[in-house]
Nucleic acid binder design. Structure first.
Length: 195
DNA sequence: GAAAAGATTACCT
DNA sequence: GGTAATCTTTTCC
C-alpha cells in the first residue's frame, strides 16, 4: 500500500510539475495571458486541503491604462504588480479582496470568475467571490504562483475554448477598452450580458 | 490630518 | 435597477 501510494504520488507530482504554468507563460503580452488563462485551473492550498477553480473570466490591466492600479507607478499597495511574472497581486476593495496574476512589469490579469471544482460552481462568480471560495486573502499578496507552495496555476486541458470579449466591469476610466475575456455560455461568468 | 474613491457584493424595492 | 456596507490607500488641504 505504502509502495503504491508512493509510486502514485511520484507520478502525480511529476504530472503536476508538467502541467503547472511556468514563468514563461506569464512573461508574455498581458492580453494573450488573459485569454489563455481561460480554462486553466487555479489551485490554492488551504491547510491540508486544496481548493480549485476553472478560470472562466479575466480582465487585462496594462501599463498605459488609467484604470490600472499601476498606472501612476509603484506604491505600497500595488508593489506586487512590479514583481516577477506569475506574482499574485491581491488588493482589498470594500469588504472583499480581488486577485491578479502579474504578467510583465506593471501589468496584470484580474481573475474575475472561476467555476469552483467540487462545490457550487457559481460560488466563484465575481472576483471577490472567487477569492472567498478559494480562500485567497490579502496575505497572498506578493505570493509567487510559479514556484510558491500555496497557489499554483495549471495549464488548460482540452480543446481551445470559445472566448468572448467585452469592456471591463466596474471601472470608470478607460471603460471602453475591450479587455475583458470570458468563456461563452459558462454559468460562472459574472456579467454575461455586458457587451 | 481629513476626505474621497474604489477592478464589489448583497439586499432592497 | 438602486444603494448601503466597510475600510484601506491615496490625495488634497
Amino acid at each position: 500500500m505504502t509502495g503504491t501510494r508512493s509510486r502514485t504520488a511520484a507520478r502525480s507530482s511529476s504530472a503536476r510539475a508538467a502541467t503547472r504554468l511556468g514563468r514563461a507563460f506569464f512573461d508574455r503580452p498581458t492580453v494573450r495571458v488573459a485569454r489563455e488563462l481561460l480554462g486553466a485551473r487555479l489551485r490554492v492550498r488551504v491547510g491540508r486541503t486544496v481548493r480549485e477553480a476553472r478560470i472562466v473570466e479575466t480582465e487585462a490591466y496594462l501599463r498605459d491604462d488609467p484604470a490600472s492600479h499601476a498606472f501612476r507607478g509603484p506604491t505600497r499597495r500595488n508593489r506586487s504588480m512590479f514583481g516577477s511574472p506569475g506574482t499574485m497581486y491581491v488588493f482589498r476593495i470594500h469588504r472583499v479582496v480581488c486577485a491578479n496574476l502579474v504578467t510583465r512589469v506593471g501589468e496584470a490579469v484580474l481573475l474575475r470568475a472561476g467555476a469552483i471544482v467540487g462545490s457550487d460552481p457559481a460560488s466563484g462568480s465575481g472576483p471577490g467571490r472567487l477569492c472567498r471560495a478559494l480562500g485567497i486573502t490579502i496575505a497572498d499578496d506578493g505570493a509567487d504562483a510559479v514556484r510558491g507552495s500555496r497557489v499554483a496555476v495549471r495549464r488548460r486541458a482540452g480543446p481551445r475554448p470559445r472566448i468572448r470579449v467585452s469592456r471591463r466591469i466596474g471601472i470608470r476610466r478607460a471603460a471602453d477598452r475591450p479587455l475583458r475575456f470570458y468563456l461563452a455560455g459558462d454559468r460562472a461568468v459574472s456579467h454575461p450580458h455586458v457587451a
